[in-house]
Amino acid sequence: MAVFPSVQWFDAVRGVFNADESYQGGGGGACNALMGLKIAGQSFLVTFEGAECSAAVKVQDNDLAAADYILEMSYADWKEMIQNIATNGHADLHHTLNTLDLGRPEGLSHSMHGDQYREDLFFRYNQTMQYFFDASARVATEFME
């Protein structure tokens, strides 16, 4: 049982994601991006290189400046998304990254640099990022109290 969020949890999701070849076909595939995450006061950087998610590390807040884009929302919203994915095997239409980004005035995705080229990676690899979080359906998850 891995606690969300933690490096252990991201590593478990990476394991499922990297082992499932179905994520690489039909519009998936090569993806090169550094995704930042802010969850419950903790910061993480997740690296996608080619066909795999190669690393997940916990970092200081200011290290997120290196991220191409940062996903940030309240812990309650993160928890609801992960639980929804676990229930359905994947996010339903109310809990996709795209929906969550559209549904909040400040968006789900933002950056610290305003670089439109790098921010566009959130859309360029949107389905791959969705596959990544959908892979968490196969990870036994424990939530922080």
């Binding site: 519009g27 990676l121 360029r124 949107n126 389905q127």
Partner: peptide
């Protein structure tokens, strides 16, 4: 639309 979105982003 998920795939078209990615193509368009490229």
């Amino acid at each position: 639309f998920a795939h078209c979105l990615e193509d368009k982003a490229r």
